[in-house]
Computed example of a mutant assay.
Amino acid sequence: MSKKSNIISDNEESPKIPARIEIASFYILENYSPIKRVGYSDSDMITSADLIRELSEMASVTVSEISELMWGADFSVTHCGSKIYWQVYRKDE
C-alpha cells in the first residue's frame, strides 16, 4: 500500500494571486498606513467604496476583496453614523 502525501512538492506551483489583487495591495500599502509614521498625515477615514473608486482605473476589485486586503494589512475600522470607515494615515505628497 502506498501512502498519499498532503505535502505539496517543490515542483508544483503555488496558487497565483490575480494581478488586480496585487495592484490593489501595492496601491493601498504605498498610499496608506495603519499606524502613524514619518511622512504620513494625521489619522483619516476612508470607506471601501472610496478605495474602489481610487483603484477604478488600475484594477477592478470588490468590497470584500478590499476588506480582505485592509484586514490583512492590520487597518482598523471605525463607525460614524451608519457607515463603516477604515482608519488610515495618508502618505504625504
Rank of each mutant, 00 (worst) to 15 (best):
E30Y: 15
F26V: 09
S33Q: 01
K16D: 03
P15S: 09
V88S: 02
S60A: 05
V63Q: 06
M1I: 15
K91H: 11
L29R: 06
K4L: 13
L29I: 11
S67I: 14
S48R: 04
T62S: 04
D10C: 05
V88P: 01
S14L: 12
V88R: 01
I23D: 05
K36W: 09
Y89R: 04
N11G: 14
G81Q: 12
V38G: 09
Y85D: 04
A73I: 14
A49I: 06
N11P: 13
Y27I: 03
I66L: 05
E13C: 13
M70A: 06
Q87I: 15
Y27H: 00
V61Q: 02
S5K: 15
K91A: 14
P15V: 13
D74C: 10
S2A: 07
K3V: 12
L29P: 02
I52Y: 02
M70N: 04
M45V: 11
F26A: 08
Q87L: 15
S76F: 07
K4M: 14
M45D: 08
E93S: 05
D42T: 06
L29F: 07
M58A: 07
S48D: 12
N6Y: 05
P34T: 08
S14H: 15
G39P: 12
Y27D: 01
S9R: 11
Y40R: 01
L29H: 09
S67W: 09
E93Q: 03
N11I: 12
S48H: 12
R37F: 08
K4N: 14
D10M: 03
H79Q: 15
L69S: 05
K91L: 14
M58K: 07
T62D: 07
A49N: 00
D42R: 14
N31H: 13
S33Y: 07
K16L: 06
G72Q: 13
M70T: 05
T62P: 01
Q87S: 10
I28F: 00
Y89T: 07
N31K: 11
Q87K: 06
I35Y: 03
D74R: 11
A49E: 01
I28M: 00
R53H: 06
E12K: 07
S9Q: 11
A73T: 13
I35F: 13
L55A: 03
I23Q: 12
M45C: 09
L55F: 02
K91W: 09
A59W: 02
V38K: 04
S60R: 08
Q87E: 14
T78C: 13
L55V: 01
K3A: 12
G39D: 09
E12S: 06
C80F: 08
S48P: 04
V63A: 14
E68D: 06
G39C: 12
Y32R: 00
Q87P: 01
M58F: 08
